[in-house]
């Protein structure tokens, strides 16, 4: 039914990334031309203990901190497990691959091509953005998370 024209890839390192590594990786990616949108995905790092006997108490976590990508500051709320990208065309994928080959030296990674990201709005987007959801923004953030995507600009 949906027929998204733009290729998508995801970068899956065999280890979950520390904020500093994620920051380096994202800055490297932000320097590659032809990336339409990006998403980082991984398990959440909530500010408060979400359930259990200690529910509601503060949850200090050293990996929940701000990183800087391009000119944007991003308050990480997850541990980065994978980076999903939508790109202009297949040549961009090769560029991402060659950059990643140089980046992941301590542990391996996989670059997978396929469909990983929403390209058409669903009911959730309708509820959140109304009938004319901006398709560049949909699916980039958790549905019930108030914080939307940030925009990264970088000299390329």
């Amino acid at each position: 039914m949906t027929n998204a024209a733009f290729p998508q890839v995801r970068i899956v390192p065999i280890r979950m990334l520390k904020p500093r590594t994620a920051e380096r990786l994202l800055n490297m990616l932000a320097g590659i031309a032809g990336i339409r949108r990006m998403m980082i995905h991984g398990p959440g790092l909530p500010k408060k203990v979400p359930y259990g006997p200690a529910r509601g108490s503060p949850n200090p976590h050293s990996d929940r901190r701000a990183i800087h990508v391009g000119d944007a500051e991003i308050a990480l709320s997850i541990q980065v497990g994978e980076v999903i990208l939508e790109v202009e065309d297949a040549s961009v994928i090769e560029e991402i691959r060659s950059h990643c080959d140089g980046f992941f030296v301590e542990f391996p990674y996989r670059l997978q091509e396929g469909r990983f990201m929403k390209t058409a709005p669903t009911l959730v987007d309708y509820a959140k953005y109304g009938p004319d959801a901006d398709t560049t923004l949909i699916g980039l953030a958790d549905p019930r998370n108030g914080e939307g995507p940030v925009v990264i600009r970088k000299e390329q």
């Binding site: 994202l26 932000a30 990336i35 339409r36 949108r37 990006m38 998403m39 980082i40 995905h41 991984g42 398990p43 959440g44 990508v69 391009g70 944007a72 991003i74 990480l76 709320s77 997850i78 980065v80 990983f116 990201m117 929403k118 560049t136 923004l137 699916g139 980039l140 953030a141 958790d142 549905p143 998370n145 939307g148 995507p149 940030v150 925009v151 990264i152 600009r153």
Partner: peptide, 12 residues
Amino acid sequence: GGIPMGQRQLMT
């Protein structure tokens, strides 16, 4: 010209 980037713990 910027790249929108989001973060998620739930996947689509």
